[in-house]
Amino acid sequence: MIKVRNIDVHFQAHHHDKHAVKSVSFSVARGECLGIVGESGCGKSTVLRSLAGLETHWTGTIGMAGRQVGQKRRRDDLPLVQMVFQDPYGSLHPRHRIGRALKEPLISMGRTADDDIVGVALEGVGLPRHFAGRFPHQLSGGQRQRVAIARALLLKPPIVLLDEPTSALDVSVQAEVLNLLSALRREMELTYVFVSHDLGVIGQMCDRLIVMRDGELIEEMTADELRGRRVKTEYARELLEKSFI
Protein backbone atom coordinates (compact mmCIF):
# COMPACT_ATOMS: atom_id res chain seq x y z
CA MET A 1 0.00 0.00 0.00
CA ILE A 2 2.82 2.38 0.89
CA LYS A 3 6.34 2.10 -0.49
CA VAL A 4 8.94 4.54 0.73
CA ARG A 5 12.40 4.35 -0.86
CA ASN A 6 15.41 6.32 0.36
CA ILE A 7 13.72 9.49 1.40
CA ASP A 8 15.92 12.26 2.71
CA VAL A 9 14.77 15.51 4.23
CA HIS A 10 17.03 18.51 4.70
CA PHE A 11 15.99 21.64 6.52
CA GLN A 12 17.93 24.78 5.78
CA ALA A 13 17.78 27.63 8.22
CA HIS A 14 20.32 30.43 8.54
CA HIS A 15 23.00 28.60 6.52
CA HIS A 16 22.70 25.68 8.87
CA ASP A 17 21.73 22.40 7.29
CA LYS A 18 19.78 19.88 9.33
CA HIS A 19 19.57 16.42 7.86
CA ALA A 20 16.26 15.50 9.49
CA VAL A 21 15.61 12.21 7.71
CA LYS A 22 18.48 10.10 6.39
CA SER A 23 17.69 7.68 3.58
CA VAL A 24 14.73 5.97 5.19
CA SER A 25 12.98 3.11 3.37
CA PHE A 26 10.03 1.00 4.46
CA SER A 27 6.81 -0.38 3.11
CA VAL A 28 3.38 -0.99 4.58
CA ALA A 29 1.00 -3.69 3.37
CA ARG A 30 -2.72 -3.09 2.80
CA GLY A 31 -4.61 -3.22 6.11
CA GLU A 32 -1.42 -3.18 8.13
CA CYS A 33 -0.54 -0.78 10.93
CA LEU A 34 3.07 0.33 10.95
CA GLY A 35 4.38 2.08 14.03
CA ILE A 36 7.20 4.60 13.97
CA VAL A 37 8.84 5.19 17.34
CA GLY A 38 11.67 7.34 18.51
CA GLU A 39 12.39 10.24 20.80
CA SER A 40 11.29 13.74 19.89
CA GLY A 41 13.39 15.22 17.11
CA CYS A 42 14.26 11.84 15.61
CA GLY A 43 12.47 12.64 12.35
CA LYS A 44 9.40 10.43 12.79
CA SER A 45 6.92 13.27 12.41
CA THR A 46 8.85 14.59 9.40
CA VAL A 47 8.50 11.19 7.71
CA LEU A 48 4.78 11.27 8.42
CA ARG A 49 4.37 14.82 7.13
CA SER A 50 6.27 13.87 3.97
CA LEU A 51 3.85 10.99 3.46
CA ALA A 52 0.93 13.36 3.99
CA GLY A 53 2.27 15.90 1.52
CA LEU A 54 2.64 18.64 4.13
CA GLU A 55 6.43 18.44 4.01
CA THR A 56 7.63 19.11 0.47
CA HIS A 57 11.42 19.19 0.87
CA TRP A 58 12.03 15.47 0.56
CA THR A 59 13.92 13.51 -2.08
CA GLY A 60 13.49 9.84 -2.90
CA THR A 61 10.33 8.03 -3.93
CA ILE A 62 7.00 7.57 -2.21
CA GLY A 63 4.44 5.23 -3.72
CA MET A 64 0.87 4.89 -2.50
CA ALA A 65 -1.83 2.50 -3.68
CA GLY A 66 0.36 1.51 -6.59
CA ARG A 67 1.21 4.97 -7.88
CA GLN A 68 4.01 7.42 -7.31
CA VAL A 69 3.15 10.64 -5.52
CA GLY A 70 5.14 13.82 -5.86
CA GLN A 71 6.29 16.43 -3.38
CA LYS A 72 3.32 18.58 -4.34
CA ARG A 73 0.20 16.46 -4.46
CA ARG A 74 -2.19 16.47 -7.34
CA ARG A 75 -5.83 16.92 -6.48
CA ASP A 76 -6.73 13.29 -7.16
CA ASP A 77 -3.88 12.12 -4.88
CA LEU A 78 -5.41 13.88 -1.89
CA PRO A 79 -8.16 11.35 -1.04
CA LEU A 80 -5.50 8.61 -0.85
CA VAL A 81 -4.19 9.72 2.49
CA GLN A 82 -5.57 11.71 5.41
CA MET A 83 -4.08 12.51 8.78
CA VAL A 84 -5.10 12.74 12.43
CA PHE A 85 -3.04 15.25 14.36
CA GLN A 86 -1.61 15.21 17.83
CA ASP A 87 -3.35 18.17 19.38
CA PRO A 88 -7.13 17.81 19.43
CA TYR A 89 -7.35 21.49 20.47
CA GLY A 90 -5.47 22.72 17.43
CA SER A 91 -6.75 20.48 14.68
CA LEU A 92 -10.35 21.75 14.61
CA HIS A 93 -11.14 25.30 13.52
CA PRO A 94 -12.32 27.09 16.69
CA ARG A 95 -15.01 29.07 14.85
CA HIS A 96 -16.45 26.20 12.82
CA ARG A 97 -19.22 24.10 14.31
CA ILE A 98 -18.61 20.35 14.24
CA GLY A 99 -21.10 19.92 11.39
CA ARG A 100 -19.28 22.52 9.35
CA ALA A 101 -15.88 20.97 10.16
CA LEU A 102 -17.13 17.65 8.82
CA LYS A 103 -18.66 19.12 5.68
CA GLU A 104 -15.51 21.06 4.76
CA PRO A 105 -13.56 18.09 3.30
CA LEU A 106 -16.52 17.13 1.10
CA ILE A 107 -17.17 20.71 -0.05
CA SER A 108 -13.46 21.22 -0.74
CA MET A 109 -13.34 18.12 -2.92
CA GLY A 110 -16.54 19.13 -4.70
CA ARG A 111 -18.59 16.24 -3.32
CA THR A 112 -22.08 16.47 -1.89
CA ALA A 113 -22.21 17.42 1.78
CA ASP A 114 -25.43 17.19 3.75
CA ASP A 115 -26.48 16.78 7.38
CA ASP A 116 -27.08 13.09 6.92
CA ILE A 117 -23.50 12.37 5.87
CA VAL A 118 -22.34 14.37 8.90
CA GLY A 119 -24.68 12.42 11.19
CA VAL A 120 -23.45 9.08 9.88
CA ALA A 121 -19.83 10.22 10.25
CA LEU A 122 -20.45 11.27 13.88
CA GLU A 123 -22.17 8.01 14.74
CA GLY A 124 -19.32 6.14 13.08
CA VAL A 125 -16.94 7.47 15.74
CA GLY A 126 -19.36 6.98 18.63
CA LEU A 127 -20.67 10.54 18.95
CA PRO A 128 -24.36 11.54 18.95
CA ARG A 129 -25.71 13.32 15.86
CA HIS A 130 -26.63 16.52 17.70
CA PHE A 131 -22.95 17.28 18.28
CA ALA A 132 -22.99 18.73 14.76
CA GLY A 133 -24.36 21.99 16.22
CA ARG A 134 -21.56 22.43 18.74
CA PHE A 135 -18.32 24.33 18.67
CA PRO A 136 -15.02 22.51 19.36
CA HIS A 137 -14.54 24.31 22.69
CA GLN A 138 -17.76 22.71 23.94
CA LEU A 139 -16.26 19.22 23.52
CA SER A 140 -13.72 17.34 25.62
CA GLY A 141 -10.33 16.39 24.22
CA GLY A 142 -11.41 12.82 23.50
CA GLN A 143 -14.55 13.98 21.73
CA ARG A 144 -12.58 16.41 19.60
CA GLN A 145 -10.16 13.69 18.63
CA ARG A 146 -13.13 11.53 17.58
CA VAL A 147 -14.34 14.40 15.40
CA ALA A 148 -10.85 14.71 13.91
CA ILE A 149 -10.91 10.97 13.13
CA ALA A 150 -14.37 11.27 11.55
CA ARG A 151 -13.11 14.16 9.42
CA ALA A 152 -10.05 12.21 8.29
CA LEU A 153 -12.29 9.31 7.21
CA LEU A 154 -14.88 11.39 5.31
CA LEU A 155 -13.01 11.23 2.03
CA LYS A 156 -12.77 7.41 2.48
CA PRO A 157 -8.97 7.34 2.27
CA PRO A 158 -7.34 3.89 2.19
CA ILE A 159 -4.41 5.27 4.23
CA VAL A 160 -4.64 7.16 7.52
CA LEU A 161 -1.61 8.77 9.15
CA LEU A 162 -1.75 9.12 12.92
CA ASP A 163 0.61 11.59 14.56
CA GLU A 164 0.57 10.75 18.28
CA PRO A 165 -3.23 10.84 18.23
CA THR A 166 -3.60 10.03 21.92
CA SER A 167 -0.60 11.61 23.60
CA ALA A 168 -2.56 14.75 24.52
CA LEU A 169 -5.41 12.78 26.10
CA ASP A 170 -6.08 11.37 29.58
CA VAL A 171 -5.11 7.74 30.03
CA SER A 172 -8.72 6.50 30.28
CA VAL A 173 -9.73 8.41 27.14
CA GLN A 174 -6.58 7.21 25.35
CA ALA A 175 -7.72 3.62 25.54
CA GLU A 176 -11.16 4.46 24.14
CA VAL A 177 -9.70 6.35 21.19
CA LEU A 178 -7.20 3.56 20.49
CA ASN A 179 -10.00 0.98 20.55
CA LEU A 180 -12.01 3.13 18.15
CA LEU A 181 -9.04 3.36 15.78
CA SER A 182 -8.53 -0.42 15.88
CA ALA A 183 -12.23 -1.07 15.23
CA LEU A 184 -12.28 1.36 12.30
CA ARG A 185 -9.19 -0.25 10.79
CA ARG A 186 -10.87 -3.67 10.85
CA GLU A 187 -14.20 -2.39 9.52
CA MET A 188 -12.87 -0.20 6.73
CA GLU A 189 -9.68 -2.16 5.95
CA LEU A 190 -7.57 0.92 6.57
CA THR A 191 -3.80 1.10 6.40
CA TYR A 192 -2.28 3.03 9.30
CA VAL A 193 1.06 4.64 9.91
CA PHE A 194 1.15 5.39 13.61
CA VAL A 195 3.78 7.71 15.04
CA SER A 196 4.33 7.65 18.77
CA HIS A 197 7.03 7.85 21.39
CA ASP A 198 5.06 5.41 23.54
CA LEU A 199 6.11 1.83 22.84
CA GLY A 200 3.17 0.55 24.90
CA VAL A 201 0.66 2.20 22.59
CA ILE A 202 2.56 1.05 19.50
CA GLY A 203 2.71 -2.52 20.82
CA GLN A 204 -1.05 -2.52 21.32
CA MET A 205 -1.97 -0.93 17.96
CA CYS A 206 0.60 -2.01 15.40
CA ASP A 207 1.58 -5.19 13.56
CA ARG A 208 5.07 -3.98 12.83
CA LEU A 209 7.23 -1.06 13.87
CA ILE A 210 10.36 0.80 12.92
CA VAL A 211 12.63 2.59 15.38
CA MET A 212 14.19 5.89 14.36
CA ARG A 213 17.06 7.81 15.89
CA ASP A 214 18.63 11.05 14.61
CA GLY A 215 16.84 10.71 11.29
CA GLU A 216 17.96 7.14 10.67
CA LEU A 217 15.92 3.99 10.67
CA ILE A 218 17.87 1.80 13.08
CA GLU A 219 15.61 -1.18 13.64
CA GLU A 220 12.56 -2.85 12.19
CA MET A 221 10.62 -5.46 14.16
CA THR A 222 7.23 -7.10 14.48
CA ALA A 223 4.89 -6.47 17.38
CA ASP A 224 5.49 -10.04 18.57
CA GLU A 225 9.20 -9.36 18.75
CA LEU A 226 8.46 -6.21 20.71
CA ARG A 227 6.25 -8.05 23.18
CA GLY A 228 8.81 -10.83 23.48
CA ARG A 229 11.50 -8.16 23.96
CA ARG A 230 13.56 -9.65 21.16
CA VAL A 231 15.25 -6.45 20.07
CA LYS A 232 18.50 -6.23 18.18
CA THR A 233 19.89 -2.81 18.99
CA GLU A 234 20.95 -1.32 22.29
CA TYR A 235 18.91 1.84 21.60
CA ALA A 236 15.67 -0.09 21.14
CA ARG A 237 16.37 -1.94 24.39
CA GLU A 238 16.76 1.42 26.17
CA LEU A 239 13.47 2.66 24.73
CA LEU A 240 11.79 -0.56 25.86
CA GLU A 241 13.08 -0.25 29.38
CA LYS A 242 11.94 3.34 29.59
CA SER A 243 8.40 2.65 28.50
CA PHE A 244 7.65 -0.64 30.30
CA ILE A 245 9.54 0.27 33.49
Binding site: V81, Q86, G90
Partner: peptide, 16 residues
Amino acid sequence: AEYVAAARLYGASHLR
Protein backbone atom coordinates in the same frame (compact mmCIF):
# COMPACT_ATOMS: atom_id res chain seq x y z
CA ALA B 1 -2.26 25.75 12.93
CA GLU B 2 -3.08 22.09 12.50
CA TYR B 3 -6.59 22.81 11.27
CA VAL B 4 -5.04 24.65 8.32
CA ALA B 5 -2.72 21.67 7.68
CA ALA B 6 -5.74 19.36 7.83
CA ALA B 7 -7.60 21.61 5.38
CA ARG B 8 -4.64 21.45 2.98
CA LEU B 9 -4.83 17.66 3.13
CA TYR B 10 -8.48 17.62 2.12
CA GLY B 11 -7.89 20.03 -0.69
CA ALA B 12 -9.32 23.34 0.50
CA SER B 13 -8.43 26.01 -2.08
CA HIS B 14 -6.26 29.01 -1.26
CA LEU B 15 -9.23 31.37 -1.44
CA ARG B 16 -11.18 29.09 0.89
